[in-house]
Structures are given as C-alpha cells and as structure tokens.
Amino acid sequence: MNSKDKILSLPDLQELVQAWRSEGQQIVFTNGCFDILHLGHVDYLEKARQLGDKLVLGLNTDASISRIKGPSRPLQDEMSRARVMASLLFVDAVVFFDENTPLELIKALQPDILVKGDDYTIENIVGQDVVTARGGEVKTVPLVKGYSTTNIVRKIENQQNS
C-alpha cells in the first residue's frame, strides 16, 4: 500500500471505520501536529496502536498549528507531515483537522479507544466525554522523556547561534 492511500478525507475515513467495525476491529484514535518525527512520536504511536486493531491519526492542518504554536510553525507542510505519518506501519489512516482541537473529528469517528500521552490526565483529554459516553475507553501512554519537536528546534537554533 502506498502511504498516500492512508491519507483520507473524513467521509472516506468514516466509511473505512464502519467497515473495520463491521469486522469487529477496535478503532484507536490519537492526534497531534507531528511536525518533526522523532523517537518520542514513534514510541507513542506504536504503544497507541497496541491498544486496539486500527490506529487513526488526526493531524493538525498548517493553519491549526500556526494558531496554536505561532507563526513560525509548522516547520513542514501538512502533506509532508501526513505522508511521513502514513508511512509508519502502525498508522492505519491519517485525517486532517483544521480546528484547534480534534473534538469534531472525535464526534464524527466515535473511536473505541482515545489515546494521548501521559502528559495529559484523562479528564483533560479533549473528547474523553464523547468516547466514554458510548462505552469507549480513554487511555494515556507513557512518553519517552526528553523528546519533543520544540526541544529539537531549540537545539538546532542553539547550534546555529554558536
């Protein structure tokens, strides 16, 4: 399968999720910017995928990231980020969202398991109420300490300034 084939519109993804569900598969959902792929991301996504049968990744659009993180971000455009994420064998589908949070996407997809890193508490995870209301689970997975895109950017900037 080509990585481009895993980048879906919301209607196409909803159809695919419905097919997966009809086969009895559990749908795991997580989201993020994933601006520079690093070990922390790979470890997190691998752990998230192990919680169910299919991993759906909600990816912030460029406009969404700029609103949240400022005008200097993202570092890579959304299609580049989507292709990189879709190339990971444990990511089954990638879908964009333009809002600041994935709440509308979570409502539309109704995942069985909603996952974030353990830097969140369950009650602070956007969409946890939607998922638990239909009997789904909300989980956190341990993050690899010291890995973040922000830290990588700082390190590059510091090297350029020295």
Results as ranks from 00 to 15, higher is better:
G40W: 02
S66F: 11
E23V: 12
V84P: 04
L89Y: 05
L8H: 07
Q76V: 10
R83V: 15
T61D: 04
G24A: 13
S3D: 13
T121D: 05
Q14E: 08
I125H: 05
S80D: 09
K47R: 15
G135E: 01
V131I: 07
E99H: 14
S162F: 05
N100T: 12
N161W: 09
E157F: 10
Y120P: 09
L89Q: 02
S66W: 07
Q160G: 15
S22V: 11
S9P: 04
L51Q: 12
I122N: 09
A82R: 11
Q159I: 07
E137C: 02
T121N: 05
M1N: 10
L45M: 12
Q26I: 14
K6A: 03
T150E: 00
E46Q: 15
G52S: 03
I68K: 12
R49F: 08
Q25C: 13
K54D: 10
N31F: 06
I152F: 05
Q14N: 04
R21K: 15
G127R: 09
F34L: 10
L10Y: 01
L57C: 11
G70M: 03
V56G: 07
Y147M: 01
V28L: 09
V28R: 01
L75M: 06
T121P: 06
G40A: 05
K145R: 03
G136P: 04
E15P: 05
G136Y: 04
K116I: 14
V153H: 01
D5Y: 02
V95K: 01
G136M: 06
L55C: 13
G24H: 10
T121V: 08
A48P: 01
V56N: 04
A63W: 06
A82L: 11
D35S: 03
I68D: 12
G135M: 01
G146P: 05
P142V: 07
R21H: 13
L114M: 12
K145I: 02
K69L: 13
T149V: 03
R67I: 14
E137G: 02
D77W: 10
V141R: 00
R154C: 03
F34T: 06
M79V: 15
G58R: 03
V130H: 02
Y147Q: 00
G32D: 08
N100Q: 13
P71G: 04
L105A: 08
V94F: 04
L103M: 09
D129E: 05
L88W: 14
R134K: 07
V130R: 02
R81T: 10
A48S: 01
F34G: 07
N31C: 06
T121H: 07
R81H: 12
E99Q: 15
S22W: 04
K116C: 10
K139D: 00
P142Q: 06
G70T: 02
M1C: 08
E99T: 14
R134N: 06
G135H: 02
G52F: 04
T149I: 01
L39D: 09
L45C: 08
I125W: 08
N60D: 11
P74A: 06
H41P: 14
A133D: 01
A63M: 10
L55P: 12
V42G: 03
M1W: 09
L16N: 08
I65R: 00
V126D: 00
R134Q: 07
L88Y: 13
D62R: 06
D129F: 00
A86N: 11
P71Y: 03
